[in-house]
Simulated assay, not measured.
Amino acid sequence: MARYTGPKTKIARKFGEAIYGEDKVLAKKNYPPGQHGANRRRKTSEYGTQLKEKQKAKYTYGVLERQFRNLFEESARTKGITGEVLLQLLESRLDNVVYRLGIAPSRPAARQIVLHKHITVNGKVVNIPSYRVKPGDVVAVREKSKSLEVIADCLAGFNHSKYPWIEWDESKKGGKFLHVPQREDIPETIKEQLIVELYSK
């Protein structure tokens, strides 16, 4: 499956949550898309509920099916609670860290900024969105990209104390990835246990 580039509101309405950020249409139409969306009363099966949760996580973090399965398999091999480890691995992706730092308005925008070589990790340009950021790494805007209007607009007024696992340095226009976030600190409303149950079948 190729990366989804269609209407974001359609996906947000499918899950009933603003997974791509603030959405005016979702506020007015908080029911599934389609001709019978408002009147659909079909009961979802246990498998359907688990699948929906996995799809929601994939769309939220912008990860493809094979990447997601590989991350799940890695989290299953890692010491700790599998579902929590999975979310921690997703949070450690470079595009997600760029988004959390407020350098980009959304994860798809953060992915594009990374691909266009505007981001450095420990002073070296990295253009791989799935790059795994490790504790102690410094993620910053590349020197010649600091004047970009889209980045400057995003950083203006952003609350950099929002996420306790990242420390922002205004002079460097970058942040230090202090540690892997704890589950209670990750704001996403994903029910990771349902994903674990789905893959454990």
Rank of each mutant, 00 (worst) to 15 (best):
Q55N: 09
Y163Q: 06
Y61N: 01
D95P: 03
V114E: 07
R66P: 00
L89M: 14
G175N: 07
G83R: 03
R111G: 03
A27R: 15
T120Q: 14
V138A: 07
W165K: 05
P135T: 11
T78K: 15
V25R: 13
K201E: 03
E170Y: 02
K124I: 09
E22T: 10
I166G: 01
E149P: 06
D185N: 14
S145M: 11
P181F: 05
E22P: 02
L101V: 07
I113V: 13
I103M: 15
P129K: 08
L148C: 02
P7M: 12
A18K: 10
H179V: 01
Q50A: 03
A18T: 04
S200T: 15
P7Y: 09
L178N: 04
R132F: 05
K43S: 13
G16F: 09
E167I: 00
I190G: 03
G48H: 07
H116P: 08
R111C: 05
Q50L: 04
L148G: 00
K14F: 03
T60N: 00
N159T: 06
S161L: 11
R77H: 13
E184Q: 13
L87W: 02
G175P: 10
I166W: 03
R41D: 09
K52H: 11
F15I: 07
R3P: 00
S200R: 15
A152V: 15
V121K: 07
P164M: 12
N96D: 04
A57N: 01
T189G: 01
E197V: 09
Q88T: 07
P164L: 10
H118S: 07
E184C: 00
A140D: 03
A27G: 02
P105C: 04
S171I: 07
G34E: 11
L90M: 13
Q193Y: 12
K201D: 01
T120N: 12
L90E: 02
K173N: 11
Q193E: 15
A110Q: 04
K54H: 09
Y163P: 02
G21E: 08
G136V: 10
D95N: 10
R142P: 00
L89W: 00
R40F: 09
P129L: 08
T78F: 08
S92L: 09
E73R: 12
I19F: 02
T189Q: 11
L198N: 05
L26R: 09
T9V: 14
V196S: 06
K54G: 03
F72S: 00
R3Q: 12
V138G: 01
Y61V: 01
P105S: 14
S200E: 13
G34T: 11
A109M: 11
S171D: 14
F15Q: 04
A109C: 05
S106Y: 01
D185A: 13
E84H: 13
Q193T: 12
P7H: 06
R93V: 06
K28N: 13
V114S: 12
K54N: 08
W165F: 07
V138Y: 02
